[in-house]
Simulated assay, not measured.
Amino acid sequence: MDFDGTATVFKALGDAHRLRALHFLATADAGCCSTGQGVCTCDVQQQLGLSQPTTSHHMKLLVEAGLVHAEKRSKWTYYTLSPRGLLVARTALDGLLAAAPSAQEAI
């Protein structure tokens, strides 16, 4: 297991704003700037209720952790979820759950 990479993912997941952003990316519909090829920064900003620089900071951390892909188009950046990044978190949790003797009894 890549402990450093996994820790980076969990650090990114350790903030309520970033969790809201991930949920928004997963559930955004065509009513926002979503083109089917990502969600626009402007919509993420509006959803989070944060300033543009703060929103960009949170999204940058999600991108660096590998949880989100970013694509610059003209003036805006569009974001999509990264299945690979989400799989890192899931795999780490599954591994811990399988290794914990009492956890298997709770299932």
Rank of each mutant, 00 (worst) to 15 (best):
M1V: 13
M1W: 10
D2L: 03
T6W: 15
T6I: 03
V9A: 02
V9C: 01
F10I: 11
A16S: 10
A16K: 14
A21T: 10
H23Q: 07
A26F: 13
A26W: 13
A28K: 13
A28I: 12
C32R: 08
C33W: 09
C33H: 07
C33I: 12
S34E: 09
S34H: 09
T35I: 14
G36Y: 06
G36A: 09
G38T: 09
T41M: 07
T41S: 03
C42D: 15
C42W: 13
C42S: 15
D43F: 00
D43I: 07
D43M: 10
V44T: 07
Q47F: 09
L48E: 01
L48M: 05
S51K: 14
Q52F: 06
T55Y: 01
T55N: 00
S56V: 04
H57I: 08
K60D: 11
L61P: 07
V63N: 12
E64I: 13
L67W: 03
V68E: 09
H69D: 05
A70M: 04
K72Q: 11
K72C: 13
R73A: 08
K75P: 13
W76G: 15
W76K: 06
Y78L: 06
Y79I: 05
T80G: 05
L81V: 10
S82G: 05
P83V: 02
G85V: 00
G85N: 00
L86I: 04
V88I: 03
A89W: 02
R90M: 06
R90Y: 02
R90V: 06
T91R: 07
A92G: 03
L93K: 11
G95I: 11
L96W: 00
L97V: 13
A98S: 01
A98M: 13
A100C: 08
A100H: 06
A100E: 04
A100W: 04
S102D: 00
S102A: 11
S102C: 14
A103W: 01
